[in-house]
Deep mutational scan, measured.
Amino acid sequence: DVEPGKFYKGVVTRIEKYGAFINLNEQVRGLLRPRDMISLRLENLNVGDEIIVQAIDVRPEKREIDFKYIP
């Protein structure tokens, strides 16, 4: 289970104008929005990159997770 405030290693699987989709595993995916990136820009991410993200909002009923990147 993903818990708000905890850090997780994930893989960038898709990049859109509104953010990057990060997979923690095959069943768990969330969104990293540009506003939640500190010292990292969306255009510097590539599909396949491994990054450490912090879960900031977890909505299991909608199967949605918002992430934050903190270097």
Rank of each mutant, 00 (worst) to 15 (best):
V11C: 08
V11K: 11
V53Y: 01
L40H: 06
T13R: 06
K62Y: 09
P60R: 11
G30A: 03
N44T: 11
A20Y: 04
Y69P: 02
G30S: 01
F7W: 13
Y18Q: 07
L42Q: 03
E61Q: 12
E50H: 15
P71S: 10
F7D: 05
K6I: 09
K68D: 02
D49W: 05
R33Q: 05
I56D: 04
Q54N: 04
Y69H: 07
K62H: 09
V53G: 00
R35N: 10
K68A: 15
N46A: 15
V58Y: 10
A55Q: 02
D49Q: 13
F67Q: 02
L42A: 04
V28D: 08
K68L: 10
E61I: 10
R63G: 15
M37T: 05
P4D: 06
A20C: 06
R59C: 04
I15A: 00
E61D: 14
N23H: 14
R35S: 11
I65D: 02
V2T: 04
V12Q: 00
R33W: 03
L31K: 03
V53S: 00
I22S: 00
L31C: 04
Q54W: 11
I22V: 12
V11T: 13
F7I: 08
V28R: 05
R41E: 12
L31W: 04
I51N: 00
P4T: 14
L40P: 02
E16W: 10
R14D: 05
K9Q: 10
D36L: 04
D66K: 08
A55I: 15
E50S: 15
E26H: 15
I56R: 07
I70D: 14
I52Y: 10
P4Y: 10
Y18W: 14
F21M: 08
G10S: 02
L42C: 03
K62S: 12
E16S: 11
K62M: 12
K6M: 11
E26T: 14
I15N: 00
I51Y: 02
D49E: 09
N44L: 11
L42K: 04
M37N: 05
D66N: 09
L42D: 01
N23P: 00
P60M: 10
K9F: 11
F7P: 05
P71M: 08
E26Y: 14
K6E: 09
A55D: 01
F67L: 11
Y69F: 12
Y8A: 01
I15F: 02
R41A: 13
G5P: 03
E64A: 07
Y69G: 03
S39P: 15
